[in-house]
Protein backbone atom coordinates (compact mmCIF):
# COMPACT_ATOMS: atom_id res chain seq x y z
CA UNK A 1 0.00 0.00 0.00
CA UNK A 2 2.74 2.40 0.99
CA UNK A 3 4.64 1.55 -2.16
CA UNK A 4 1.53 2.30 -4.18
CA UNK A 5 1.24 5.79 -2.68
CA UNK A 6 4.95 6.34 -3.17
CA UNK A 7 4.70 5.47 -6.83
CA UNK A 8 1.36 7.03 -7.59
CA UNK A 9 1.33 9.98 -5.15
CA UNK A 10 1.98 12.44 -7.94
CA UNK A 11 -0.67 10.93 -10.17
CA UNK A 12 -3.32 10.87 -7.45
CA UNK A 13 -2.86 14.54 -6.64
CA UNK A 14 -2.77 15.38 -10.31
CA UNK A 15 -6.04 13.51 -10.90
CA UNK A 16 -7.70 15.58 -8.18
CA UNK A 17 -6.34 18.82 -9.61
CA UNK A 18 -7.64 17.92 -13.05
CA UNK A 19 -11.02 16.95 -11.59
CA UNK A 20 -11.14 20.44 -10.05
CA UNK A 21 -10.34 21.96 -13.43
CA UNK A 22 -13.16 19.91 -14.90
CA UNK A 23 -15.48 21.42 -12.30
CA UNK A 24 -14.26 24.90 -13.23
CA UNK A 25 -15.52 24.35 -16.77
CA UNK A 26 -18.66 22.63 -15.51
CA UNK A 27 -19.81 25.68 -13.52
CA UNK A 28 -20.34 27.98 -16.52
CA UNK A 29 -21.72 25.03 -18.48
CA UNK A 30 -24.32 24.61 -15.76
CA UNK A 31 -25.62 28.01 -16.88
CA UNK A 32 -25.40 26.90 -20.51
CA UNK A 33 -22.14 28.72 -21.23
CA UNK A 34 -19.52 26.78 -23.15
CA UNK A 35 -16.33 28.43 -21.96
CA UNK A 36 -12.87 27.22 -22.88
CA UNK A 37 -11.31 29.87 -20.68
CA UNK A 38 -10.47 27.62 -17.73
CA UNK A 39 -6.92 27.10 -18.91
CA UNK A 40 -6.44 30.88 -19.12
CA UNK A 41 -7.54 31.41 -15.52
CA UNK A 42 -5.51 28.38 -14.51
CA UNK A 43 -2.48 30.08 -16.07
CA UNK A 44 -3.24 33.37 -14.31
CA UNK A 45 -3.55 31.60 -10.97
CA UNK A 46 -0.29 29.76 -11.52
CA UNK A 47 1.57 32.94 -12.34
CA UNK A 48 0.16 34.67 -9.25
CA UNK A 49 1.53 31.88 -7.05
CA UNK A 50 4.81 31.58 -8.95
CA UNK A 51 5.53 35.31 -8.82
CA UNK A 52 4.48 35.79 -5.20
CA UNK A 53 6.41 32.80 -3.93
CA UNK A 54 9.61 33.46 -5.84
CA UNK A 55 9.72 37.24 -5.78
CA UNK A 56 7.59 38.58 -2.96
CA UNK A 57 7.49 36.12 -0.06
CA UNK A 58 11.05 35.25 0.89
CA UNK A 59 11.19 32.14 2.99
CA UNK A 60 13.60 29.39 3.83
CA UNK A 61 12.85 25.75 4.55
CA UNK A 62 9.40 24.33 3.85
CA UNK A 63 7.12 26.93 2.31
CA UNK A 64 4.52 28.07 4.88
CA UNK A 65 1.02 26.77 4.15
CA UNK A 66 -0.38 30.13 5.20
CA UNK A 67 1.42 31.83 2.34
CA UNK A 68 0.16 29.20 -0.06
CA UNK A 69 -3.41 29.76 1.09
CA UNK A 70 -2.96 33.51 0.71
CA UNK A 71 -1.71 32.94 -2.84
CA UNK A 72 -4.69 30.79 -3.73
CA UNK A 73 -6.99 33.45 -2.34
CA UNK A 74 -5.35 36.18 -4.40
CA UNK A 75 -5.22 33.95 -7.48
CA UNK A 76 -8.93 33.23 -7.13
CA UNK A 77 -9.78 36.89 -6.65
CA UNK A 78 -7.71 38.08 -9.60
CA UNK A 79 -9.18 35.40 -11.86
CA UNK A 80 -12.66 36.36 -10.70
CA UNK A 81 -12.08 40.02 -11.49
CA UNK A 82 -10.68 39.23 -14.95
CA UNK A 83 -13.66 36.94 -15.53
CA UNK A 84 -16.13 39.69 -14.74
CA UNK A 85 -14.34 42.18 -16.99
CA UNK A 86 -14.09 39.74 -19.91
CA UNK A 87 -17.39 38.03 -19.17
CA UNK A 88 -19.71 41.02 -19.32
CA UNK A 89 -19.04 41.68 -23.02
CA UNK A 90 -18.20 38.08 -24.00
CA UNK A 91 -21.18 36.32 -22.46
CA UNK A 92 -23.56 38.01 -24.87
CA UNK A 93 -22.27 35.42 -27.33
CA UNK A 94 -23.78 31.99 -27.58
CA UNK A 95 -22.55 28.45 -28.17
CA UNK A 96 -19.56 28.05 -30.41
CA UNK A 97 -19.09 31.82 -30.64
CA UNK A 98 -18.51 32.10 -26.91
CA UNK A 99 -16.16 29.12 -27.09
CA UNK A 100 -14.16 30.89 -29.80
CA UNK A 101 -14.00 34.14 -27.82
CA UNK A 102 -12.64 32.26 -24.82
CA UNK A 103 -10.08 30.48 -27.02
CA UNK A 104 -8.99 33.92 -28.19
CA UNK A 105 -8.64 35.07 -24.60
CA UNK A 106 -6.53 32.05 -23.67
CA UNK A 107 -4.24 32.52 -26.67
CA UNK A 108 -3.78 36.25 -26.03
CA UNK A 109 -2.87 35.53 -22.40
CA UNK A 110 -0.42 32.88 -23.58
CA UNK A 111 1.39 35.15 -26.02
CA UNK A 112 1.51 37.97 -23.46
CA UNK A 113 2.94 35.68 -20.78
CA UNK A 114 5.56 34.45 -23.26
CA UNK A 115 6.75 38.01 -23.66
CA UNK A 116 6.59 39.65 -20.26
CA UNK A 117 9.64 39.58 -18.03
CA UNK A 118 7.62 39.21 -14.84
CA UNK A 119 6.28 35.86 -16.09
CA UNK A 120 9.75 34.71 -17.03
CA UNK A 121 9.17 34.91 -20.78
CA UNK A 122 9.50 31.68 -22.72
CA UNK A 123 11.34 29.80 -19.97
CA UNK A 124 8.82 30.69 -17.29
CA UNK A 125 9.38 30.60 -13.57
CA UNK A 126 11.20 27.75 -11.84
CA UNK A 127 12.15 26.56 -8.43
CA UNK A 128 8.79 27.34 -6.89
CA UNK A 129 9.03 26.59 -3.17
CA UNK A 130 7.56 23.37 -1.80
CA UNK A 131 5.24 23.39 1.20
CA UNK A 132 5.21 19.60 1.41
CA UNK A 133 8.05 17.11 1.46
CA UNK A 134 6.49 14.76 -1.10
CA UNK A 135 3.98 15.06 -3.93
CA UNK A 136 1.50 13.05 -1.89
CA UNK A 137 1.65 15.74 0.81
CA UNK A 138 -0.40 17.96 -1.50
CA UNK A 139 -3.27 15.57 -0.97
CA UNK A 140 -3.84 17.26 2.40
CA UNK A 141 -4.73 20.37 0.51
CA UNK A 142 -6.15 19.08 -2.74
CA UNK A 143 -8.27 16.27 -1.31
CA UNK A 144 -10.34 18.47 1.02
CA UNK A 145 -10.58 21.13 -1.66
CA UNK A 146 -12.01 18.64 -4.13
CA UNK A 147 -14.52 17.41 -1.57
CA UNK A 148 -15.52 20.97 -0.71
CA UNK A 149 -15.99 21.97 -4.32
CA UNK A 150 -17.97 18.82 -5.04
CA UNK A 151 -20.17 19.62 -2.06
CA UNK A 152 -20.49 23.18 -3.34
CA UNK A 153 -21.52 22.05 -6.81
CA UNK A 154 -23.93 19.47 -5.44
CA UNK A 155 -25.65 21.95 -3.16
CA UNK A 156 -25.63 24.64 -5.82
CA UNK A 157 -27.62 22.40 -8.17
CA UNK A 158 -30.49 22.37 -5.68
CA UNK A 159 -30.33 26.01 -4.64
CA UNK A 160 -31.96 29.15 -5.97
CA UNK A 161 -28.93 30.40 -7.90
CA UNK A 162 -28.17 26.93 -9.26
CA UNK A 163 -31.77 26.67 -10.48
CA UNK A 164 -31.38 29.99 -12.24
CA UNK A 165 -28.23 28.64 -13.92
CA UNK A 166 -29.99 25.48 -15.02
CA UNK A 167 -32.97 27.45 -16.29
CA UNK A 168 -30.61 29.53 -18.45
CA UNK A 169 -29.01 26.37 -19.78
CA UNK A 170 -32.39 24.88 -20.67
CA UNK A 171 -33.90 27.98 -22.31
CA UNK A 172 -32.36 31.37 -21.83
CA UNK A 173 -35.28 33.26 -23.27
CA UNK A 174 -37.88 31.52 -21.14
CA UNK A 175 -35.69 32.03 -18.07
CA UNK A 176 -35.46 35.73 -18.89
CA UNK A 177 -39.24 35.92 -19.16
CA UNK A 178 -39.49 34.21 -15.74
CA UNK A 179 -37.55 37.04 -14.11
CA UNK A 180 -34.04 35.55 -14.17
CA UNK A 181 -31.36 38.11 -15.09
CA UNK A 182 -29.35 36.28 -17.78
CA UNK A 183 -26.25 38.48 -17.79
CA UNK A 184 -25.88 38.52 -14.02
CA UNK A 185 -26.16 34.77 -13.64
CA UNK A 186 -24.01 33.95 -16.65
CA UNK A 187 -21.24 36.24 -15.44
CA UNK A 188 -21.60 34.79 -11.94
CA UNK A 189 -21.27 31.22 -13.21
CA UNK A 190 -18.33 32.21 -15.40
CA UNK A 191 -16.59 34.01 -12.51
CA UNK A 192 -17.13 31.12 -10.10
CA UNK A 193 -15.51 28.76 -12.60
CA UNK A 194 -12.69 31.24 -13.18
CA UNK A 195 -11.99 31.62 -9.47
CA UNK A 196 -11.80 27.87 -9.08
CA UNK A 197 -9.45 27.57 -12.06
CA UNK A 198 -7.27 30.33 -10.59
CA UNK A 199 -7.05 28.52 -7.27
CA UNK A 200 -6.17 25.24 -9.01
CA UNK A 201 -3.48 27.08 -11.00
CA UNK A 202 -1.92 28.50 -7.83
CA UNK A 203 -1.71 25.09 -6.20
CA UNK A 204 -0.50 23.47 -9.43
CA UNK A 205 2.38 25.96 -9.75
CA UNK A 206 3.77 24.74 -6.43
CA UNK A 207 2.93 21.14 -7.17
CA UNK A 208 4.68 21.21 -10.55
CA UNK A 209 7.51 23.32 -9.15
CA UNK A 210 7.62 25.38 -12.34
CA UNK A 211 5.20 27.51 -14.33
CA UNK A 212 5.35 28.67 -17.94
CA UNK A 213 3.23 29.61 -20.92
CA UNK A 214 2.70 25.97 -21.87
CA UNK A 215 0.47 25.46 -18.83
CA UNK A 216 -2.39 27.53 -20.17
CA UNK A 217 -2.88 26.56 -23.77
CA UNK A 218 -5.64 25.58 -26.11
CA UNK A 219 -4.73 21.91 -25.57
CA UNK A 220 -5.42 22.27 -21.87
CA UNK A 221 -8.76 23.95 -22.59
CA UNK A 222 -9.78 21.08 -24.78
CA UNK A 223 -8.54 18.45 -22.37
CA UNK A 224 -10.67 20.03 -19.67
CA UNK A 225 -13.69 20.25 -21.94
CA UNK A 226 -13.19 16.57 -22.66
CA UNK A 227 -13.30 15.83 -18.91
CA UNK A 228 -16.72 17.43 -18.75
CA UNK A 229 -18.19 15.99 -21.93
CA UNK A 230 -16.78 12.51 -21.47
CA UNK A 231 -17.52 12.46 -17.76
CA UNK A 232 -20.99 13.89 -18.24
CA UNK A 233 -22.07 17.51 -18.36
CA UNK A 234 -25.36 17.31 -16.50
CA UNK A 235 -24.16 16.67 -12.97
CA UNK A 236 -21.10 17.65 -10.94
CA UNK A 237 -20.02 13.99 -10.79
CA UNK A 238 -19.31 14.03 -14.54
CA UNK A 239 -16.31 16.39 -14.65
CA UNK A 240 -14.84 14.79 -11.52
CA UNK A 241 -15.05 11.32 -12.98
CA UNK A 242 -13.94 12.49 -16.43
CA UNK A 243 -11.01 14.45 -15.03
CA UNK A 244 -9.80 11.50 -12.99
CA UNK A 245 -10.24 8.84 -15.65
CA UNK A 246 -8.71 10.86 -18.48
CA UNK A 247 -5.77 11.94 -16.33
CA UNK A 248 -5.08 8.38 -15.22
CA UNK A 249 -5.51 7.02 -18.72
CA UNK A 250 -2.00 7.74 -20.11
CA UNK A 251 -0.63 6.16 -16.93
CA UNK A 252 -2.81 3.10 -17.32
CA UNK A 253 -1.74 2.91 -20.94
CA UNK A 254 1.93 3.24 -20.03
CA UNK A 255 2.70 -0.37 -21.07
CA UNK A 256 1.81 0.71 -24.61
CA UNK A 257 4.85 3.02 -24.52
CA UNK A 258 4.92 5.46 -27.42
CA UNK A 259 1.60 4.23 -28.76
CA UNK A 260 -0.28 5.42 -25.71
CA UNK A 261 -0.96 8.96 -26.93
CA UNK A 262 -2.42 7.53 -30.10
CA UNK A 263 -4.70 5.28 -28.10
CA UNK A 264 -5.50 8.23 -25.83
CA UNK A 265 -6.76 10.24 -28.81
CA UNK A 266 -8.63 7.23 -30.12
CA UNK A 267 -10.41 6.74 -26.81
CA UNK A 268 -11.34 10.43 -26.68
CA UNK A 269 -12.89 10.12 -30.11
CA UNK A 270 -14.72 6.89 -29.31
CA UNK A 271 -16.02 8.25 -26.02
CA UNK A 272 -17.42 11.34 -27.73
CA UNK A 273 -19.18 9.11 -30.22
CA UNK A 274 -20.39 6.24 -28.07
CA UNK A 275 -20.90 7.88 -24.67
CA UNK A 276 -22.90 10.95 -25.66
CA UNK A 277 -24.31 11.44 -22.15
CA UNK A 278 -20.94 10.92 -20.52
CA UNK A 279 -19.90 8.35 -17.97
CA UNK A 280 -21.95 9.90 -15.16
CA UNK A 281 -25.38 10.00 -16.71
CA UNK A 282 -27.88 11.53 -14.27
CA UNK A 283 -30.74 9.84 -16.11
CA UNK A 284 -29.70 6.51 -14.66
CA UNK A 285 -30.22 7.94 -11.19
CA UNK A 286 -33.27 9.99 -12.12
CA UNK A 287 -35.11 6.94 -13.46
CA UNK A 288 -35.02 5.27 -10.09
CA UNK A 289 -36.11 8.32 -8.13
CA UNK A 290 -39.18 9.18 -10.15
CA UNK A 291 -42.10 7.42 -11.68
CA UNK A 292 -41.20 5.31 -14.70
CA UNK A 293 -40.99 7.44 -17.80
CA UNK A 294 -44.15 7.07 -19.80
CA UNK A 295 -44.35 6.99 -23.54
CA UNK A 296 -45.00 10.27 -25.26
CA UNK A 297 -48.63 10.81 -26.12
Amino acid sequence: MEAFFQTYGFLLVYMCLQALLGLSTYLPLMAGQLSLASSGFYAIGGYVAAILSTQVFHTSGAYPIGYLLLETLLAGLLSGVVAVVVGIPALRLRGIYLALATIAMVEILRVVSLNLSITGGAVGIFGIAQPFSSPLGYMWLVGPLLLLVMFFAYRLEGSRIGRAFIALREDELAADAMGINPTYHKVLAFALGAMLAGVVGAISAHFLNTWNARQGTFDVSIAVLAYVLIGGSRSFAGPVLGGMVLTALPEVLRPLKDLRFIVDGLLLMLAAIYLPQGLANPNWLARRKTAPVREKT
Binding site: I96, A226, I262, M269, A272, I273
Partner: peptide, 30 residues
Amino acid sequence: RPLRARGADPLLALVSSLGAGLVIVNLVQY
Protein backbone atom coordinates in the same frame (compact mmCIF):
# COMPACT_ATOMS: atom_id res chain seq x y z
CA ARG B 1 -20.73 10.51 -39.49
CA PRO B 2 -21.66 8.40 -36.44
CA LEU B 3 -22.53 11.55 -34.52
CA ARG B 4 -24.49 13.00 -37.40
CA ALA B 5 -26.41 9.78 -37.84
CA ARG B 6 -27.61 10.14 -34.27
CA GLY B 7 -28.30 13.87 -34.50
CA ALA B 8 -25.91 14.44 -31.59
CA ASP B 9 -24.88 17.74 -30.03
CA PRO B 10 -22.37 19.49 -32.36
CA LEU B 11 -20.11 19.98 -29.34
CA LEU B 12 -19.40 16.28 -29.37
CA ALA B 13 -18.13 16.61 -32.94
CA LEU B 14 -15.69 19.15 -31.61
CA VAL B 15 -14.31 16.60 -29.16
CA SER B 16 -14.34 13.66 -31.55
CA SER B 17 -12.53 15.63 -34.25
CA LEU B 18 -10.04 16.75 -31.66
CA GLY B 19 -9.46 13.15 -30.66
CA ALA B 20 -8.96 12.28 -34.33
CA GLY B 21 -6.48 15.15 -34.66
CA LEU B 22 -4.57 13.85 -31.65
CA VAL B 23 -4.40 10.41 -33.22
CA ILE B 24 -2.92 11.87 -36.42
CA VAL B 25 -0.39 14.08 -34.66
CA ASN B 26 0.80 11.31 -32.36
CA LEU B 27 0.89 8.81 -35.19
CA VAL B 28 3.20 11.17 -37.07
CA GLN B 29 5.33 11.54 -33.98
CA TYR B 30 5.46 7.77 -33.56
